[in-house]
Amino acid sequence: MRIAARGLRLVILAAFAVFFAVPVLWLILAPTKADGALVTSSPLSFGSFHQIALAWDHLDAFSDHIYRAWIGNSLLYALSATAIVLATAIPAGYGLALGKFPGRRVVLTLTLVVMIMPAAALVLPIFLELNSLHLIGSVLSVILPFSFFPFGVYLAYIYYATAVPRDLLDAARVDGAGEWLTFRHIALPLAKPIIALVFFFSFVADWNNFFLPFAVLADSSQYPIQVGLSDLLSSTPSFNPAQGGGGQQVNIFRPELALATLIAVIPVAIVFLLSQRALVRGMLGGAVKQ
C-alpha cells in the first residue's frame, strides 16, 4: 500500500515534469534542424550545430538586422526603467516604513492596490492618457510607465519595516547624521539583498511586457523583442501560408522562429536561474515569518 502510494506520487510528478520540460527541450533542439527535418525527424532529436549558424544568419538578415535592434531596444527599455525604479522605489519604501507624515497610509494603500491590480488593466488607460499628451510613438512612452513599479516599493517597504532594526537608524540620527546621511550610509548598504530582488522583478516584468509597447509604439524599429516576435510570427509562412512568397524571401521558418524565441528568453532565463529562492522570499517576505 505504501509502496503503491509512493509509486503513484512519482508517476504524477514525472507526468507533470514531462508536460513542463518537453516544450522547453523541443525549443532548444528545434534550431539545430532544418524546417523539413523538423517534420520528418523525431521531435526530440539533435540536428547539427551548423544548422544553428544557418538559422541565425537567416534571422539576422531579416529586415536589415532588425532582430538585433529589438534585443537592443528591450535591453534599453528594461535597464533604464529598472534604474529609475531602483532610484525611486528603494527610498520610497524607506520613507514609507520609517517616516511619519500625513498621507503615508494613503500612499501605501494606493501602492498596494496598483501593485496587485493586473498590469494589463492599466495599459489602455495609460495609452489613452499618453495619447492625449501626444507622447505615443516616443521611446519615453514605454520607459516612463515601466519606471512605475509599485511591487518594488512594497518589497523595500517590507524590508525596512521588518528586517532593519529601528534602533540602529535612531542611533545614527542621535550621532548627528542627518536624514539623508542616515539613509545613504546606513539604510542603503543594508538593503543590498532587496536591491537585487527589485532589480530581478522589475527587469523581468519589463522584458516580458508585450501589451504596453504593442499599444504605444508604432514603428517596428522601436519594438522590444516581445513585440518583435509577434512581427516575426506574422511574416513566416509556417503559420501563415498566405505569407508563402514573403516567407521564401525572408527565410523565416520554424527553426528561425524557434531560435528567435530562444534568444529572446535568455536574459530572463538567467535571472530565473538565479532567483528561484528570491522569488519565494519576495512573495512570502511580507506576510509569513520564517
Binding site: A87, T88, A89, P91, A92, Y94, G95, L96, L98, G99, K100, F101, P102, R104, V107, V153, E179, W180, F183
Partner: peptide, 11 residues
Amino acid sequence: VPRGLPFIVPY
C-alpha cells in the same frame, strides 16, 4: 519637513 516625506517625493 515631516520625517520620511522627502524620500517618497521622487516616487
